[in-house]
């Protein structure tokens, strides 16, 4: 029964008569908490060209917002399409708690561009563990761009003396002017800690 409904809505989302009908179908899928609904939404997001339908899909994925969505959204970070990647970051950062586990994995992804996106998702989220993960990235990641993004976020989110110390220590890790500049501005922002 549920499957029939999902496939009907999926069909309507793909090839509904009007744009409104397609938006509606995408939004309706968001009130079905089932893996199949998430799958059809994600698949459509990958090929969808209409901006508003895309937006409806992202909204629905955020609304379902469970661990399964988090896992599928993490996959979007590997996409070639900038819109899809950003949608992945947005979904992960907004859904919060259910995304923690997968984000923890993603900050160890072999591709550094994906790691940067994972750091962005963490930094934009309201997840409590963010600070701990950012510190870890700053101390352990061996790519300077990934570390630099983590430093930028930590300088905004960190409220403890340790946060500043982590950044200060990391200054020695890379010598490029870009990195040194990032560290310097972060420490300025954290002057009161």
């Amino acid at each position: 029964m549920l499957e029939v409904k999902i496939s009907e809505l999926a069909e309507q989302m793909k090839s509904g008569k009007s744009k409104n009908e397609r938006i509606q179908a995408a939004l309706d899928l968001g009130s079905i908490k089932a893996k199949e609904a998430v799958d059809v939404l994600v698949e459509q997001l990958l090929v969808e060209e209409d901006e508003v339908v895309r937006e409806a899909i992202v909204t629905s994925l955020i609304k379902i917002g469970d661990e399964y969505v988090a896992n599928r959204a993490a996959g979007l970070l590997e996409s070639e399409d900038a819109y899809v990647r950003n949608a992945g970051v947005e979904i992960l950062s907004i859904i919060g708690e259910p995304a923690i586990e997968i984000l923890q994995k993603m900050i160890n992804h072999p591709d550094r561009d994906v790691r940067i996106l994972a750091v962005n998702a963490l930094g934009e989220s309201h997840i409590r563990e963010t600070i701990r993960y950012l510190r870890r990235v700053i101390m352990e990641d061996d790519d300077e761009n990934v570390v630099a993004s983590a430093i930028e976020y930590l300088s905004e989110l960190g409220f403890e003396k340790e946060d500043k110390e982590v950044v200060m220590k990391a200054a020695k890790r890379f010598s490029s002017p870009f990195f040194q500049y990032t560290v310097k501005s972060a420490i300025e922002k954290m002057a009161d800690l």
Binding site: N20, I23, Q24, L27, E55, A56, V58, I62
Partner: peptide, 13 residues
């Protein structure tokens, strides 16, 4: 956030 987006889409329609 999620509810705002949803309402924005209803307004769009």
């Amino acid at each position: 956030d999620a509810s705002r987006r949803q309402v924005a889409l209803y307004f769009y329609e």
